[in-house]
């Protein structure tokens, strides 16, 4: 061992954290997904692919040989992906003008606007989610005002719908889109926009051909930061989506709680990880490469 051995030692704390905190739990989850459920929760050390089988298929109760697709699980999977995609798009559409507004303020006032964006982080997520529930429930603030003003005669059913989940998730994750977008805009050379106008670009053309491609790294970072926690969201669908509108996070939690089927919960968690990784790879391949192939 020469001097290099000592350098490795300096990396040890980081390596320990990486192995124990990041890879360790993941390995445990992966192993659990191939074990049998214990009677009172937990696992028994007995190899089984039953959990993975049950993620996708179900056996008929009376005729175990009759196998059908587990449409309930797959529907929840699809719902989670679809709601997360919508959340990401909503955050991008709302986040772009917000970030642009902040990036075009004077340098002195920008920290103030960024501070406003981060204020929601100061309060517990559960409290904020219940606050949204209070606003949108049938005899909540919004319905009371609308009924009082005579715009509607029956209260609008907003709580326990997909709308409620989207509203809650967009509210929670919006700052995660605004901040990377702002960072990308802040780095942008403003004379590029002037050059676009100077070369006969209209406002729309400058936005489309110059600003959007240049803040694309911000969109990519923001989309990743929003999509990944959205697909595993637990509190928001639980509080705003009610019992019928489960998302993946709730389904997984159910297996570790009432379901007492840890291997199934682990298999679902692993599948979610795979979906996220595949989605990321596809996303980065298409978005990250397109500008190299686009021709003027």
């Amino acid at each position: 061992m020469g001097g290099n051995g000592w350098k490795w030692l300096l990396c040890a704390p980081a390596l320990v954290v990486l192995v124990l905190a990041a890879s360790g739990p993941l390995v445990i989850v992966a192993i659990y997904s191939f074990l049998s459920p214990g009677n009172m929760g937990g696992v028994t050390w007995e190899f089984s692919t039953e959990a993975w089988f049950r993620v996708f298929f179900r056996r008929d109760i009376f005729e175990p040989d009759l196998v059908t697709w587990n449409t309930a699980n797959l529907a929840i999977f699809w719902r989670s992906v679809w709601l997360s995609i919508q959340t990401t798009v909503i955050c991008a559409v709302l986040g772009f003008p917000t970030a642009w507004f902040i990036a075009t303020r004077s340098p002195r006032s920008r920290p103030f606007w960024l501070f406003l964006i981060t204020i929601p982080f100061w309060t517990n997520l559960l409290i904020r989610t219940f606050a949204i529930q209070e606003m949108i429930r049938n005899n909540g603030t919004i319905n009371t005002v609308l009924l009082w003003s005579g715009l509607i005669e029956q209260p609008l059913q907003m709580l326990f719908t997909d709308f409620a989940i989207l509203l809650g998730m967009a509210y929670v994750f919006l700052p995660l889109m605004v901040l990377p977008l702002y960072a990308a805009m802040d780095k942008m050379n403003l004379s590029l926009i002037e050059a676009g106008y100077d070369l006969y670009g209209s406002r729309g053309a400058v936005l489309w051909h110059i600003i959007l491609p240049l803040v694309k790294p911000g969109f990519i970072a923001g989309s990743i930061l929003v999509f990944i926690p959205a697909i595993g969201a637990y509190v928001t669908p639980r509080v705003l989506g009610g019992g019928q509108s489960l998302m993946l996070g709730n389904l997984i939690a159910l297996q570790f709680g009432q379901g007492r089927n840890w291997p199934l919960g682990s298999a679902l968690a692993m599948l979610m990880l795979i979906v996220v990784v595949v989605a990321l790879v596809i996303y980065l391949r298409t978005v990250g490469r397109s500008d190299g192939e686009r021709r003027v």
Partner: peptide, 8 residues
């Protein structure tokens, strides 16, 4: 432009 402002 002084900074050239070429579209990167």
């Amino acid at each position: 432009f002084q900074s050239y402002a070429l579209f990167p």
